[in-house]
């Protein structure tokens, strides 16, 4: 006899598997179409899944909106660039790097992990200050953090190259590499959400006062989630760098913040599946809009949206979702296998 509770637990455990399969199908479908542009779009989408799932670890569980996670992407991308670029290139491009980093010539995987780790470390230190604030004030402080990172990166020319881009990153990221990171992010997010700390954090999201009265240390759980989420945003930033091959501080500023936030809100902040579905839905929509901006020929007439309309349409869609379906496409539900598939034979008799 399988109890109701066990069935629920088993169903919850299928969520990451279902999501990973969904992404696998997405990659296979994109590759089957055989179009290079579509394969690139698939890789980009999966990088965004990594970042937005990382973003969700904090925002979804704590209920505090962060505007600073694009900055972690910036840090991750530059750390990975510092570690993987050829030493002779760094000597000319970035003369201000310390000796040890200037001589480094790492493999790409440890460099991406290091990118995430440095972002997580920065999150641990800044989060210790920012997360003492209450919800909305904390959100604004994360915005200040984003602006601070952008100011430093745009002006510290000898180390970051300033506003001129850092070029020549090894473009190793294909859909499979991105899929690996996205699945890792989904697994970690599931484990964190199911662990005691994730549960405690969601309790503070639902009712801060009651959670505090039950002995939950809001600050500690928020800080843990913030650090963890910064790791995947940093790693995702490193992937972006090695996907495009060129990085620039403004590539990790307001438009990336907006895109990540839009994906999370449209998919639904309340669940991990919402984060993943939001990325998939918006990436496909953005791809379609970008193609329409380039111009679509219908018969003899070429029809093109003016440049910039993509973001307007996304913003309007986001506002409409917030007005008419505030909990997003997934409305806080997770995708999971149906109960009778996981219940085992005994429970079918009841």
């Amino acid at each position: 006899m399988t109890s109701q509770h066990t069935i629920r637990r088993r169903m919850a455990a299928t969520t990451p598997v279902v999501l990973a399969l969904l992404l696998l199908v997405f990659v296979l479908a994109a590759l089957a179409l055989g179009d290079r542009a579509i394969a690139r779009m698939a890789a980009e989408t999966l990088i965004r899944v990594t970042m937005v799932v990382g973003f969700w670890i904090f925002v979804g569980n704590s209920g505090v909106v962060s505007f600073g996670h694009a900055a972690f992407g910036c840090i991750g991308a530059y750390v990975s660039a510092w570690l993987t670029l050829k030493p002779e290139m760094k000597a000319t491009l970035l003369p201000g790097l310390p000796e040890m980093i200037a001589a480094a010539d790492w493999h790409v995987l440890p460099a991406a992990v290091a990118g995430g780790a440095v972002a997580a470390l920065v999150a641990l230190v800044t989060g210790a200050a920012i997360l003492r604030l209450s919800g909305i004030a904390a959100s604004i402080a994360t915005f200040a953090f984003l602006a601070m990172v952008n100011t430093i990166w745009a002006n510290w020319t000898s180390v970051t190259g300033g506003t001129s881009s850092v070029v020549g990153l090894d473009r190793y990221v294909n859909p499979w590499v991105a899929l690996g990171w996205a699945v890792a992010a989904i697994l970690v997010a599931t484990l964190h959400a199911a662990a005691a700390s994730g549960l405690a954090l969601r309790a503070t999201r639902e009712d801060e006062v009651a959670a505090a009265a039950s002995g939950i240390d809001r600050f500690r759980h928020r800080l843990l989630a913030y650090t963890l989420s910064a790791f995947f945003c940093g790693a995702g930033g490193a992937l972006i760098g090695h996907f495009i091959g060129v990085i620039n501080p403004d590539g990790f500023y307001l438009s990336l913040t907006f895109l990540m936030l839009a994906m999370l809100v449209i998919g639904g902040v309340g669940s991990l599946s919402g984060a993943v579905v939001g990325v998939l839905a918006l990436s496909i929509a953005v791809e379609a809009l970008v193609r329409m901006e380039k111009g679509v020929s219908i018969g003899a007439a070429t029809f093109a949206l003016p440049p910039g309309s993509q973001e307007i349409i996304l913003a309007v869609a986001m506002i409409l979702i917030l007005i008419f379906r505030p909990s997003g496409l997934m409305a806080g539900r997770e995708v999971m296998l149906p109960a009778r598939w996981v219940a085992g034979r005994a429970s079918t008799e009841t």
Binding site: G63, V64, V65, F67, G135, I136, S139, L254, F258, L261, A262, V265, E311, I312, L314, A315, V316, M318, I319, L322, I323, P326
Partner: peptide, 12 residues
């Protein structure tokens, strides 16, 4: 929080 996010979208 929802109000803040929608004002961000309006700004964009």
């Amino acid at each position: 929080v929802a109000l803040m996010v929608s004002s961000f979208a309006l700004g964009v």
